[in-house]
Simulated assay, not measured.
Amino acid sequence: MNEIRNIYCVGRNYVEHAHELNNQVPTSPLLFSKPTHSLVKANGEEITLPSDRGAVHYEAELVIRIGQPYKKGMKVDELVDRMALGIDFTLREVQSELKKKGHPWLLAKGFPNSAVLSEFIDFPGVEECKKSNFSLMLNGEQVQLGTIQHLIFDLQTLIDYTALHLGLGEGDVIFTGTPQGVGKVSDGDELSLLWDAGKLGDCTIKLT
C-alpha cells in the first residue's frame, strides 16, 4: 500500500443508498477521509475488526487511483491510472451518535482495517468502466451491485471537487461511494469483491 497517499471517500453518492439509511440526497459531494492506518488488502486473509463498538457495516465501492498531479481542466482518463474495489467499513452506531452531535465521522470510519482494497487493475477509461458492474458477495450471496452509471456525482465531478477543496495528486485514491445493500458483518463472514464476473479480492472477517 506504499503507493497510496491520501484516502478520500464520498458519502451518499447513490440515491438508493441514501434512502436506505434515511439520509437526504446531497446537493454537492459529501467528502471525508480515512487515515493510512485504515488500509488493508483483500488478499484472502483474515481482516480483524472491532466487536465492542456496535455493528460494523460493509460498504463496497469502486476506488480510483490518481496517477499524476491534478491540474485544472484535466479529464478523468488523463488522471486516473489504476482502479480497485474497496470496502468502506463503518461503525454504524458510532456514526449515528456522531451525526446527532454534529461531529465528524472519523471515529466511525477511520479505525484500523476500515479501508479494504482489492488488487489494482488498469483503469479502462470512463466509458468502458460504465459498461461493467462491481459487486460484493457475502458468504457466496450477492449483497451489493453497483455501476458508476448510477453515481449522483460522476467521476469528473468528484475529482474536480476534491482537488479544489482538498488537493489531489499522484498516489491519492478516492472511494467513490457505495450502492444500496449495505449491512452488518459477523465473525467468520467471507467477503468477495467482483468486477463483472472476475474476483479482484476476498477476505474473512475476524471480530475481536
Rank of each mutant, 00 (worst) to 15 (best):
R5I: 07
I7D: 03
C9V: 02
H19Q: 14
E20Y: 03
L21M: 15
N22I: 05
V25S: 11
S28C: 13
L30I: 06
F32S: 04
S33Q: 14
H37F: 07
S38Y: 05
S38I: 04
V40K: 06
K41C: 12
G44P: 10
E45M: 09
L49M: 04
D52L: 13
R53M: 13
G54I: 03
G67L: 01
G67M: 03
K72P: 01
E78N: 02
E78D: 11
L79V: 01
R82M: 12
F89Y: 13
R92D: 03
S96R: 13
L98R: 04
K100D: 00
G102F: 02
H103P: 02
P104C: 10
L107G: 05
F111Y: 13
F111H: 09
V116E: 03
E119I: 14
E119F: 03
F120H: 04
D122C: 08
D122R: 14
F123E: 00
E127Q: 10
C129D: 00
S132W: 00
N139I: 12
Q142R: 15
V143P: 08
Q156I: 07
Q156C: 07
T157F: 01
Y161D: 15
Y161W: 08
L164D: 15
E170H: 11
D172G: 11
I174G: 08
G177Y: 07
P179L: 01
Q180G: 14
G181I: 05
G181Q: 07
K184H: 13
D187R: 08
D189Y: 07
L193N: 01
D196Q: 10
L200W: 12
C203L: 15
T204A: 11
